Computed example of a mutant assay.
Amino acid sequence: MTADPLTVLIVDDDFRVASVHHGFVEKVPGFVVVGEAHTATEALEMAERLHPDLVLMDIYLPDGDGLDVTRALLDSARAPIVFVISAATDVEAVRTAIQLGVVHYLVKPFGFAALAERLGAVRAARAQIADWPSDASQQHIDHLFDLLRPARSDHDAADVEHLAPTLQLVYKSIGNQKPGLSASEIAALVGISRATAQRYLAQLENLGAVSLELRYGQTGRPEHRYSLRHR
């Protein structure tokens, strides 16, 4: 019997970023987004009404601190799992997140693979809890905690050498250029269509071989820039 999907509430003050994260989550089997909140007030109201299993929580909100919202959510009767999704890397924010019981802390911007592996870990832990034995041992508990620390999926160039030739060309065309290349630029370098380049880049990102960064201009949709991910 297939388990019900985990419901997800996305909290981010930037509508564009929330939309990108929404798309990321719904690409992962077993998860469904039930709402997007853009303020602390909205986050608290929607969490109380929707009872999400998981909240992706930004810290910088226009009317409050996402960590204060996290504290309120985790103190509630139906506390969700919380991932912090933020550009904040100061020690106070990280320490507070750990003390509150945040399960993962992802620094923006990040690619699909980084979020997908953590969502997969939560899904696996949920399945483990559903089958929890009445005589659980320390080994069972250790395994559960290990599930929430997914192995890194970074690949180096040697791994990519075993892949299809065109995939290798796309990977090698990126090189070490900063701040990465767009799908159109990579397509021109390799001599393929932009759509084909985008498809290969999605494969490389899912493998953990490249990372995706969203770069915002003054208007319009964010630009996707791809860089090699090194060990």
Rank of each mutant, 00 (worst) to 15 (best):
F112V: 06
S193P: 04
A43V: 09
S134L: 15
H143D: 04
S19C: 14
A97L: 03
S153W: 05
E92Q: 14
R95W: 08
I98V: 15
P62T: 10
D58W: 08
S137V: 07
P109Q: 04
R229K: 04
P80F: 08
L207A: 00
S227P: 09
I174H: 00
A3K: 13
Q218P: 05
D154R: 09
A188K: 13
P62N: 05
H38L: 05
L228C: 03
A77H: 11
A37H: 01
V55L: 06
T166I: 12
R16M: 13
S86C: 05
D142S: 03
Q218N: 05
S137Y: 07
S211Q: 12
D131K: 12
G101C: 11
L144I: 15
I59A: 00
M1N: 09
P29C: 02
A127T: 14
A151V: 15
D68G: 01
Q198W: 04
S182F: 02
L147V: 15
A188W: 07
A3W: 12
A197Q: 01
A151F: 10
T89C: 10
V210F: 02
Q139W: 01
F112N: 04
D13I: 15
A114F: 09
L106G: 06
A72V: 14
H21V: 13
V102D: 06
L144V: 13
H51W: 12
V55M: 03
Q218H: 10
S193A: 01
V69G: 00
H38Y: 11
L181M: 09
I59F: 00
L67C: 07
L54C: 08
S211L: 09
N176Q: 15
K172M: 03
H51Q: 15
A187Y: 01
D63G: 03
L50V: 08
E161I: 12
L44A: 02
A125K: 07
A158G: 03
L228A: 01
I10P: 09
V17I: 10
H162L: 00
V82L: 02
M46K: 10
R49Y: 10
F24W: 08
S137G: 06
A79F: 11
V33Q: 13
S173T: 01
V28F: 03
P109S: 02
K172I: 06
N176G: 11
V160H: 00
V11S: 02
A47V: 12
S86W: 04
D135S: 08
A136K: 06
A37T: 04
S19R: 15
V103N: 13
P80R: 11
E42A: 03
D12E: 13
Q203V: 04
A202V: 04
H21A: 09
R199V: 10
H155M: 11
D146E: 14
R118G: 04
H155Y: 06
K108I: 12
L74I: 14
K178S: 12
I192R: 05
F24D: 02
G191E: 08
Q138V: 06
P150C: 05
D58H: 05
E205Q: 03
H143L: 10
S86N: 06
L44V: 07
A124Y: 07
A209N: 00
D90V: 11
L61V: 09
V33D: 14
I186S: 02
T70M: 03
W132Q: 06
Y105A: 01
D13N: 15
A136D: 02
A125V: 12
V94P: 08
G175Y: 02
L228I: 07
D68F: 01
A127V: 13
R16G: 10
D135C: 05
D65C: 02
T219E: 01
Y105I: 07
T2Q: 14
A130S: 07
R16K: 15
S134R: 15
